[in-house]
């Protein structure tokens, strides 16, 4: 039998070269979706294969990798992807945002500000922001070529007419460097402002849809809106029940079947860091109790 053997970071060198070329063009044309010959990965399409390929093409032995899903290092898919790289590339991993050189994420941008030299790799399901308005790639590609984004504004405006608000709560479209309308992946719109003028490099990988795109550091990223309906962030208006943070995005936790809810930071590293620094919310465990966790 052809017993399988695998290269450093799983991908073969030819595949890495192809992905690396795509990443460079993506950085050179901020917000533009570069087609690439995405490979079948040993995890399913839709589960981060795009992000995994971008990370694999970039990762080196001196990198420190953090993987989050929903803001948390301990969700099963984040664990699975982190283990994959620890195994295939032998890289050091961390849960601390500050210490990571490469952060692969699904659906969140960490709360702690990123710094220069860090790379944030987003897993993207549907990279085309116009896809829900126009299913055909041939059409949407033409619209991007001509900067023809009227349809997107019409959609947002129809929301306002119907609901009184722009009814997009996540994957909220942005314009990058005043040219390309871009899908930020299904992050809550709370995170959109963090993309603007970030010191970190942001790379987006969509494996099934075979696209890579990028936001270079210090690049203007504007959430689409209207003068009379400006973009607004949303977070549940409460402090985190564990660390008391009032500026972090919260997960809603159903605590019984009588309507009780609790709100805690979705960014677990941020929350734990705050608790370690002595911050407390109304539900936080005393330090001696935490040891069981």
């Amino acid at each position: 039998m052809n017993a399988p053997t695998y290269n450093f970071a799983y991908l073969d060198e030819q595949t890495k070269r192809m992905i690396r070329r795509a990443i460079l063009k993506a950085i050179a044309i901020p917000g533009y979706q570069v087609p690439f010959a995405s490979r079948e990965m040993p995890m399913p399409y839709g589960w981060g294969t795009g992000g995994v390929q971008v990370t694999a093409a970039m990762l080196g032995p001196s990198d420190v990798l953090k993987v989050i899903d929903q803001g948390s290092d301990d969700t099963t898919n984040a664990i699975s992807i982190r283990k994959f790289f620890a195994k295939t590339a032998g890289v050091a991993t961390t849960t601390h945002t500050e210490d990571a050189t490469v952060i692969q994420t699904r659906h969140r941008i960490p709360e702690a500000p990123l710094h220069a030299g860090q790379v944030l790799v987003y897993q993207v399901p549907i990279p085309e922001p116009l896809r829900f308005l126009e299913p055909r790639e041939t059409e949407t590609r033409r619209m991007h070529a001509l900067s023809e984004y009227g349809l997107m504004h019409v959609k947002l405006y129809e929301d306002i007419a119907r609901f009184g608000h722009i009814a997009t709560a996540y994957a909220y479209p942005v314009k990058v460097n005043a040219r390309y309308v871009m899908d930020p992946s299904p992050t809550p719109k709370f995170d959109n402002p963090k993309m603007d003028n970030s010191p970190a490099l942001q790379l987006f990988g969509a494996g099934r849809e075979k696209r890579i795109y990028a936001i270079p550091p210090y690049t203007t990223v504007v959430s689409l809106d209207f003068q009379d309906h400006p973009f607004e962030r949303y977070r549940f208006d409460a402090p985190c029940a564990l660390c008391g943070a009032e500026d972090a995005y919260l997960d809603e936790i159903v605590t019984d079947d009588k309507g009780s809810r609790m709100f805690v930071c979705s960014d677990t590293d941020y929350c734990e860091g705050r608790q370690a620094a002595g911050h407390r919310g109304k539900e936080s465990a005393a330090p001696w109790e935490k040891a069981h966790g």
Partner: peptide
């Protein structure tokens, strides 16, 4: 491709759902 994307709905979507819920 199809099974990956259909089945990815099993993955957590807490944060985008939460944003939608708020709205």
């Amino acid at each position: 491709q199809a099974t990956g994307f259909v089945e990815h709905l099993k993955l957590p979507h807490y944060v985008d759902f939460q944003s939608e819920l708020g709205l």
